[in-house]
Design a binder for these strands. Sequence first.
DNA 1: TTTAATATGTTATATTATAACATTGTTATA
DNA 2: TATAACAATGTTATAATATAACATATTAAA
Lengths: 131, 131
Amino acid sequence: MAQKQGYLSKNQKIVLDYIEKANQPLKAYSILFNVQKKGLKAPPQVYRALDRLVEIGKVHKIESKNAFVACKNSSCTISNATAFSICDGCEKVTEISNPKLSKYLSGFQDNSGMKYNKYNLEFFGLCKKCR
Amino acid sequence: MAQKQGYLSKNQKIVLDYIEKANQPLKAYSILFNVQKKGLKAPPQVYRALDRLVEIGKVHKIESKNAFVACKNSSCTISNATAFSICDGCEKVTEISNPKLSKYLSGFQDNSGMKYNKYNLEFFGLCKKCR
DNA sequence: TTTAATATGTTATATTATAACATTGTTATA
DNA sequence: TATAACAATGTTATAATATAACATATTAAA
C-alpha cells in the first residue's frame, strides 16, 4: 500500500473522510471510536493518519483544543500559515482566510535574527449568536 | 489563604518562582517533580496554580508544546495578546514583544461578525545558532 | 460569628499521545 | 521472478498530560 507523494493511504482516507464530514474540530479519540467500524482499532492508526494529514496540510490541529479540523482553503498551500477564530461560547472554530493577514504575518520579522517559516494564530472571542 | 485580586497564594508563588527561574518553557509534571520538596504533592495542586497564573497573565502556555513559561512583559497587561517565536532546532521559545504586531492583531476584524478579545500566535523557524 | 468564597490536600481516573515491534503490501530493479 | 528497500498497517503496552470529585482549611466580608 505504499504510494506516491500526494496520494492518501487507506487509513488516511478514512480519517480525512470522517473529519471532512464534520465541520467542527474533532478529538483524536472521537475519531477513533467513529472509524472503528472501518477497521481502525487502535490509537496509533489514527494518530499516524492525523500526523500525515497535518503534514500535508489537509488537516489542521487546533492546539488550544487538541482537536483536528479539515483544511478549508481548497488549495491547501498555506498549511504553514494558519489562523483560526474560536468562539468561547459555542466553541465554533472557523479557519480564517484573509490575504492581508497572512501576508502580514508571513512577512513578519523581528530583530531576533530568527527566520520564520510557519505560524499558527488562534483568535478567541464570542460569535454573533453567543454575544 | 484566600486573597485579594493580584496577590498570589502560597502554591501560586511556589510554582511561579520555579517557572521564573527557568527561562524556558516547563512541562507541568516537571514543575511538579521540582516543587515536591516545597510540599506540592499532586498534579491538581500544580495545575490549579498554573491555571490561575495563566489567567492573571503571569504565565503563558505554549500550546504547541504543552509547556508553561513566565511572562516577560514586566507589566503583564497583555496576556490576552500573546506571541511567541519557537525554534524548531533548539526548541528555544521567546516571547515576542512588538507593539506594531500586537496593535495589528488586537485590531484585527474579519467579516464574521466575531468580536475578538484574545489571541495567541506562535511562530516557528530556526534561530541564528540553528541555521 | 456565621456565611460565602477561595485555596488546599488527596485519591482516583480521564484524556491525549507515543514507543516498540511484528507483519504486510508496494515499488523498483537485478 | 525474486529480492531488496521502503511505506503503511496492525497490535500491545505504556507514557504523558490533565481533570473529577470530595474533604478540609483558611480568609474576607456581611
